[in-house]
Design a protein around this nucleic acid. Structure first.
Lengths: 126, 126
DNA sequence: CTCGCAGTTAGAGCACACTCGAAGTCAAGC
DNA sequence: GCTTGACTTCGAGTGTGCTCTAACTGCGAG
C-alpha cells in the first residue's frame, strides 16, 4: 500500500495506543502527520524515529510539557542545538538522581524484608 | 506540651503536607491518630515510623491502593507475615525492573546527547 | 482580652496523561 | 452491493494522588 505506517501500525510498534498517538500530535509532540488520499495518517520514518526518543523521555519521567519544549526547539532549526543539549543533559541528571533515590529508598524496604524473613525463620524453627 | 507530634511537625519531618497526612489517615494508610483534648492530632512514634516506610513505598512507585492492602495486613495481626513479605518482595522486584528500564532508556537519551555534542564540537572547529 | 496562627471538618477542585464515546468515512473481502 | 473493521474528528470522561477552600475552634503571646 501507500508508504508510511498507519496509526495502528505505529501503535503496535511503539506500545502507545492510537489514541495517544493522535493526542501527541495534537499537543505538538509530533509534526502534523501527512495523510493519504482518504485522510488517514501515514507516519514517516522520521515520525517513528521521533517517537522512539519521545517514548524514552516519557518512560524516564520527563513531563509532556517539557518534551513539547524540546520538540519546539527541534522545529525552530539547528541554531539552538546547545539549548537542546542542555535540556537533555539536565534530564539525564534528573534520571540519575531518580535512580539513586530509588536505590536508597529500596534499601529501607529491603531492611523490612529482612526483618520479616527473620520472623518467619524463627517461627519455622520454634 | 502533650506528647506526640502535631500534623505540622510530622509534615516537616516527612516532607508530606498536612493535607496529605490527613488524607493518608482517611484512606486507611494510618490508623486513626489519637487527639489531644482540643481534638488535634498527636502522632505517636509508631505512626511516624509507619510513615517512614510508607513514604519509601510511594517514592518507589507503589500505588496507594497497594499500600492500603499492606497496611490492612499489618492491622489484621501477625499471622499473615508471609503474605506481607510476599507483597514487599514483589514490590522489590518491580523496583529493580524499574531501575534497569530507566538505565536502558537513559542509554538512548545518552546517545542523542553524544550526537549533539558532536555537532557542537564540529561547529566550534569549523 | 485580643490577635494571630495552627489546627479541625467535609467536600470541592486540580494537574497530569491519557482514554473513550459518538457519529461518520472509506476500502477491501465475500 | 454489503459488511467489517480500521480509520477520522471533537469533545467529554477517567484514574491517580493529592491540594485546597470555607467556616470554624482553640491555644499562647503581648
Amino acid at each position: 500500500m501507500a508508504d508510511g505506517l498507519t496509526v495502528g501500525e505505529v501503535a503496535d510498534k511503539t506500545g502507545l495506543t492510537a489514541y495517544t498517538l493522535r493526542w501527541y500530535e495534537q499537543v505538538g509532540l509530533l509534526d502534523p502527520i501527512p495523510r493519504d488520499h482518504a485522510g488517514r495518517r501515514r507516519y514517516r520514518l522520521r515520525d517513528v524515529e521521533r517517537l522512539d526518543l519521545l517514548t524514552k523521555m516519557r518512560a524516564t519521567g520527563m513531563p509532556v510539557r517539557e518534551m513539547v519544549r524540546y520538540v519546539a526547539l527541534v522545529r525552530a532549526g539547528t541554531h539552538n542545538r546547545r539549548e537542546r543539549l542542555e535540556l537533555l543533559e539536565q534530564h539525564r541528571t534528573t534520571v540519575l538522581r531518580q535512580i539513586s533515590e530509588l536505590q536508597r529508598d529500596l534499601a529501607v524496604i529491603d531492611r523490612k524484608i529482612t526483618r520479616y524473613r527473620g520472623h518467619l525463620h524463627a517461627e519455622q524453627t520454634d
